[in-house]
Write a protein that binds this DNA or RNA. Structure first.
Lengths: 324, 324
DNA sequence: ACGGAATGTGTAACCCGTTACATAAATAAT
DNA sequence: ATTATTTATGTAACGGGTTACACATTCCGT
């Protein structure tokens, strides 16, 4: 690999001049520039980013922490972040944390040693202190971590209320909820939205609530029990689409007809909900958009540390399909 | 951030000694080591990986190129590669190429400037020359690129034959094929497996073949036409599960009963096939395993360049579900 | 024609670990 | 007792860009 000194020698200039040509800063005479350009061409010279990073203390890399890329909600988020990173000349690092705080911390330290420029966190296990101590720009995505940390999320509470209202409008009289894990902020907000919508109904009963873990199987089992215990249930608001699939399957296994006997609405709007039959009505998040915004904001924070940046809450949108 | 010189000063030794302690090489007196350790502790010193990389010319990073992480086949692959990278102390970089050669080349150059240690390619657009010129270890995954490039794949040809044989065993007498793009090696192999299994049947007709692009929608449309034109078809071997979903939907839209009137078998074994109804019988690849092996082999190649490494062809496995 | 600004280029320090090489003391071998 | 090893530690160059600073030239205004 040719170095900047090779180029300098060939072009009969100093390394400083070559550097100026590469970075388009400082004064360089037009004819000198031509010579340098030619030398660069001739040697097929590419600057060594590692050397650059060492001097600048910046690596032009950003990382995304997700619980598990195999969860179908995250690939679209990852895609968005990668697209934006790439567009701005950043390299994209993906970390699967499995919701384990020790993994997050290990990744964090490893990345700091590599002079990572910024991190986007989808996390429910990071503590306030851990986030405060971070030496690089950080954005929370999908889940709030603490009020001081800029986040890009959706209006989970409002979306949940809208979902339940929609079920009511469809004529449901006994609406249950399969919630997400209570350590995840968006699950709590969706749950609260549900609760505020049903708590004053005379039919409401706390047994209409069951707690899932945002995954298919547990929701499948939990819903079977729920529906066996409470056959009067005619609507279910499920805290995410993945569990929504489990709910559809539970209904199927109990020979409950959807949407005739039971309406189901999910949350997230992942492609998967389009493929089930019946397909799943859902409160769709603008998944790509929030990933994109998180990346844009992060890069803004990296490149212009002084600009004031605010958290964003995007809107979910009812997407009616066959399950209601 | 504390540097090695700060540590050296505090411990009253030279930087060389500190380096020896950190890397556990060379001779260091026990008591000196204690002092150094304490200084490291006290300053909360972490070596700067960028400086290390600069000197060593290695970055402890590996990259995975996939067409698009949003395609449900790839997250599991990515997860496997990330797990193994992480286990061996490598940082994992994900690149979405959209099957565009210019993107691949752009990524490649960017990564080389960052002293990337190795790359795993899922690619059908990289040319032989481009691969030959690469200055770092490279492994092809899922798709062969050229015979000289080590690859980790599955027995697509055999798997395809088994799939068709299975349909025959199930009593299918008119078996069609929805193939993948012919520029993708595994699609060609699967197609050939199908062809070798049906070409001598008296019922075989070239109109039983239709070409898809490994995505749901095109397969949906193509299959609708196929089945309208050839209502005698009673079995379809689909080159991947994603298109398998499209086929199931096409049958549904034509009110063709699966598996009674039509049997469908896919290829890949992605989780999605489990969620459709009917669920999709498939030739399941050991997706995680091949990703894992690709990463292991790559790291082997990086760390021990002289070991002889051979391509691997893993076996697919028939997974019978409701669509047959 | 003279002073100050704009233009053009080079030298060398710097970023921070790593390691070849030198030196010296302690221990082992003969 | 003397030489060969082993152990222990330090100095300084190195990897490859970047940039502060110095110096030289050209241009412009008056």
């Amino acid at each position: 690999m040719a170095t900047i000194r090779d180029v300098a020698k060939l072009a009969n200039v100093s390394v400083a001049t070559v550097s100026r040509v590469i970075n388009k800063n400082g004064y360089v005479n037009e004819s000198t520039m031509q010579r340098v350009r030619q030398a660069i061409e001739q040697l097929n010279y590419r600057p060594n980013d590692v050397a650059r990073s060492l001097f600048k203390g910046k690596s032009k890399m950003i990382a995304l922490f997700v619980p598990d890329i195999m969860n179908p909600f995250f690939p679209e988020l990852a895609r968005a972040v990668e697209d934006i990173s790439n567009k701005h000349g950043y390299t994209f690092i993906l970390c699967n944390t499995d919701n384990q705080n020790d993994k997050e911390i290990a990744y964090l330290n490893a990345l700091l040693q590599k002079s990572i420029d910024g991190i986007i966190l989808v996390s429910s296990t990071m503590t306030t202190n851990q986030v405060k101590d971070m030496k690089v720009p950080v954005i929370a995505l999908d889940r709030k971590i603490n009020p001081d940390l800029i986040s890009v999320t959706v209006n989970n509470y409002e979306g949940a209320r809208q979902a339940v209202q929609y079920l009511k409008n469809q004529g449901c009289k006994r609406i249950a909820h399969v919630s997400g894990p209570e350590n995840i902020s968006n699950a709590r907000e969706r749950f609260k939205g549900y609760l505020d919508e049903v708590r004053d109904e005379e039919w409401f009963h706390s047994d209409f609530i069951c707690v899932g873990n945002y995954a298919v199987n547990e929701a499948f089992e939990a819903t079977k029990n729920l529906l066996k215990r409470n056959p009067e249930i005619d609507g279910i608001f499920v805290a995410n689409d993945l569990m929504g699939v489990g709910v559809l399957k539970a209904a199927e296994s109990l020979k409950i007809k959807i949407p005739n006997e039971l309406s189901v609405i999910g949350f997230d709007g992942i492609e998967l909900g389009n493929i089930t039959s019946p397909s799943l009505t859902t409160m769709a998040q603008p998944i790509y958009s929030i990933g994109k915004r998180a990346a844009e904001i992060l890069i803004q924070k990296i490149e212009h540390p002084n600009t004031v940046i605010k958290s964003e809450e995007h809107k979910v949108k009812l997407t009616t399909r066959e399950s209601t």
